[in-house]
Amino acid sequence: MAKKKEMSRLANLTKGFFKENPIFVFLLGMCPALAVTSTMETGLGMGVLVILVLTMSNTVISLIKDLIPAQIKIPAFIVIIATFVTIIEMLTQAFAPALYEALGIFLPLIVVNCLILGRAEAFASKNGPLNSAIDGIGMGLGFTMALMLIGFTREVLATGAVGYGVYLPLGIEGSFINIDSYILAMDVFIGPAGGFIVIGLWLAVFQAFSNRNKRIKADTRKRWIEEKKREAAERKRQKAMKEAGETS
């Protein structure tokens, strides 16, 4: 849908990847980010479900945004989101029962994922359906990538291997990485404490990068200002010399 569009649509799609990443920049949807990322595959499964729900809810909300009175906006949005979540929940139970079991209570809790209501409020209630759908896909992809990154780190640290085909019906089974060394395996990372620590770690990495970018930007600006100042001083001096030459 979004592939053949001009720059603005592309920017709309990709802004959720890094610049406005829901988890690492806005800290939206932290509960699933902590709870379902003990393996990479559950993170991927959750991400896919969130993409589906977010795209559909964004589209529908932007279609009917003018019909909803301002006072009951939030309840109306929540009911729309809850409807899609229920549909997705039933489909997951039917087609990916292992994922359904693994996600447990966090599947119905997609309803209160701040990311979805946040996008409905901040984007879909102000933009057209197509843009809202693209925004939903982009933000959902950013969310999925963040979950997979966290899940990958935790799974590698906890078990020394990253497997696939356990929870999702992929048709294939195996493992991306298998270090095969249980000396390195740290059980704590599969538990709750590991979730907090790994997310903290990645957030620190992101913060370090954004700090560096800010510093570089500030430096370039400072250098630019100094350059201008020096040029002005040079011009002044030349002018003064010229005047001095004329008078003498």
Partner: peptide, 21 residues
């Protein structure tokens, strides 16, 4: 600098979770 704010808080929460285990 990089750990200021939320990152260090999350690590503290992780340590608290370890204690609660």
């Amino acid at each position: 600098e990089a750990w200021k704010g939320v990152p260090i808080s999350l690590v503290i929460a992780g340590i608290m979770a370890l204690a609660f285990l």
